[in-house]
Amino acid sequence: MIVGQQKPFDEIWEMVKGFKKVLVFGCNTCVAICHAGGGKEAEILTSLLRMKAAQEGIDMQVDNAAIERHCEPEFFEPLMEKVRTYDLVLSTACGVGVNFLSDRIGAIPVYPGINTTFYGAVPEAGFFVELCGGCGNCVLHLTGGICPIVRCSKSLMNGPCGGTNNGKCEVSNETDCAWFLIVERMKKLGTLEKLFEVQPPRDWSTGTHGGPRRISVEHIRAFEEEEEKNAATEGR
């Protein structure tokens, strides 16, 4: 899932203080799981903003709302009319949600309430770790299911650097050395010899270095088009 962290309150206040009618708009999927921007967090942030506005003597209406997802248009439908009545939408969805709403809302600013940080997992409640870099060219079959792109601080592809220290990374002793984990894991799997194969320099254009990425699933799009056509014919 996508993991983010709420921006510092003072930074949020600086963003919103010039607006009269603000909607704090939460997303109840990934960012709700990481306690950053779900409906509950949006409600709490709304209350804090109201109190700050009262303290500063600023007349400001701050309301909150939440939908299940900010990354699919259907979920916006029940609320869009109301959302368009605000001067500012402070979205606590991930960056995807902020972009997606900005594209649809018209001439109303959508500001981010959280810092979208990584694709991660939840090993224990309240703790989130980055496990995938979304590089667009997966090599996990070569590395025992441990990602060297994002779990190695240097994204090394052919073994550890000289900074590996008793299984920890030189960047921080709280960070495991990914290559130590990979070697141990591959020993366990009996596939250590795979690591003797030298990986050539990577083509990073499949990642964010190649510009915005798009995926088109043609058979789904063709099916949807067909359905629309059929509906139109039946309508006639």
């Binding site: 109840n28 939440a66 259907e74 109301k82």
Partner: peptide, 20 residues
């Protein structure tokens, strides 16, 4: 799909105390 899309919203009930 619209019926699947659930939305929650909080109507404005607050009467925030003003500094005095």
């Amino acid at each position: 799909m619209a019926d699947v899309a659930e939305a929650t919203e909080q109507t404005r009930v607050s009467t925030t105390e003003k500094p005095h």
